[in-house]
Simulated scan of single mutants.
Amino acid sequence: MQARHTLTASERSRLLPFVVASGEISPRDQRDLMERPFFSLSKTKRTTPILYAAGDTRVEVFGMPEHGMATIWDADVLIWAASQIVEAENLGLTTSRFLRFTPYQLLTGIGRQTGARDYGLLRAALARLQSTVVATTIRNGQNWRRQQFSWITEWEICASRNGRAAGVEIVIPEWLYRGVIDRSLVLAIDPAYFRLTGGIERWLYRVARKHAGRQRTGWTFEIGHLHQKSGSLMRPSDFAIQIRRAAACQPLPGYRLSIERAGVRELLRILPTDLSTYPVDNYVNGIGTSHASTIGTSHAGLSGLHTHKPQLSLWPETAIPALNLSNLDSNSYVDGKPRSADNPSCPSIAPFKGPGDGP
């Protein structure tokens, strides 16, 4: 039975849809999400809040008991959505916070399988993204003025007659959308990122890409500082062990890790080994909804981007009658105490495992 929202009108009724094109594109990540603790690094359910403060920057993340906090694997959905928006904007097309696509497009775009289990994991990821509440002062200047939102404000999966998921609709928050269409806030990432299996490894790659980038001299972090930035529930000593393990395994595509010491301080040095990753080349601007009749992406044919009438037969207006808002109390806070650990490992190229599946 689908959850229904009875308090406010659907944002989808007020936004023109951006129908995502098919084809391979360069994945892009949003800078603010790459260096601060916005996601759980564990594959087990986390409801303990993330509370992070550094100067004027504050990040608070709350997971609901029913679904738990959105994980760094769930963030692949946001990376893929951001990549599609940036690609369209780079082609001179306006976009929308309201995206339509097929599960197959998303799953193949982030290196997942497309079996029944993977569609089930996608549903669970969308539920966590919608029910996770984020409050942050990022991009609000010197004044402590926070914005509060969920990673997905609405979502719906449209199933075919045989019960297979055929189409997806999501609405992303304005805060994320503005951070995606601003060229200075987006970086290209290595597609091999999606094959990293450990939460800390994935988080470390994003930190490396954001800070070390293409600098030949790389970047150095104090491991204690990294622990704070990660939002991890691990003890600092256990976190340091996992950083040393990552340095021994060398899992990050394009970067090499080494442990150094400066007196009593333990440091992690990150050096780029492959300078092929690069920032987004073309400036993207403009906030709006698409009024283009077609959209072409590199390495792909044309795709429908019609905004005046329903686009594909997957989405007749009567086929998706209700919102799928998985938690009506998503703006409430959850209190809790640390009681779980992150789940890092030396990665092997293996199929994706969803939260709760173990290492």
Rank of each mutant, 00 (worst) to 15 (best):
P65M: 02
V284R: 09
A240I: 02
G198M: 01
Q250E: 11
D329V: 02
Y205L: 15
T94Y: 00
L126R: 07
A248F: 00
I295W: 04
T44H: 10
N140P: 02
A135T: 14
T294I: 08
A54S: 14
V207C: 06
L121D: 14
L51G: 02
T273S: 10
L99W: 02
I200H: 05
L78G: 08
T102Y: 02
A300E: 07
L204W: 03
L16G: 03
E66L: 12
L126K: 03
V171P: 05
R128N: 08
A159M: 09
P355A: 12
W175C: 00
R214E: 08
R146Y: 09
D76T: 03
E222D: 15
A188I: 00
R145I: 05
L91C: 12
S332H: 05
P316F: 03
V264F: 01
R164D: 05
P359C: 10
F101S: 11
F194D: 01
D182G: 00
N285W: 13
S330G: 04
H299S: 14
I25R: 12
C249E: 12
A319R: 05
P310I: 02
H5K: 06
G163E: 07
Y255W: 02
F239P: 01
A54T: 11
L129C: 04
S326G: 03
T8C: 00
V86K: 08
M69P: 05
Q215K: 09
E154Q: 14
R46F: 00
A292R: 06
T297K: 03
V134P: 09
Y205C: 04
A247V: 09
I259V: 14
K43C: 08
V77F: 15
G336Y: 04
V20G: 08
K353L: 15
R339V: 00
V334Y: 07
G92Y: 06
G296Y: 08
L176I: 10
A208R: 06
I349G: 01
T8R: 08
H291L: 11
C346P: 13
I287N: 10
A350G: 03
S340A: 03
A322N: 05
R235S: 11
H227W: 14
V133I: 02
E174L: 11
A116Y: 06
S230N: 05
D357C: 13
I295G: 00
L33P: 03
A9C: 05
P347Y: 01
D238H: 13
V264R: 12
G120M: 00
T137P: 12
W155M: 08
D274S: 12
K353A: 12
H227Y: 08
A300W: 00
V61S: 09
D357H: 14
T318C: 07
A319H: 04
A341M: 03
I110N: 03
W73V: 07
I320N: 13
E35W: 01
G218Y: 06
R36Q: 08
Q2G: 10
R28H: 10
D56H: 00
A341E: 13
S10P: 02
F39A: 10
G111F: 08
G358I: 03
L185F: 00
K353V: 15
L78S: 07
A341H: 14
S83E: 04
G92N: 02
G55D: 02
I152S: 06
R214N: 15
P316W: 04
R216G: 09
T71G: 07
S330N: 14
Y177L: 08
T277M: 04
G296V: 14
I170D: 02
R123N: 11
S22K: 10
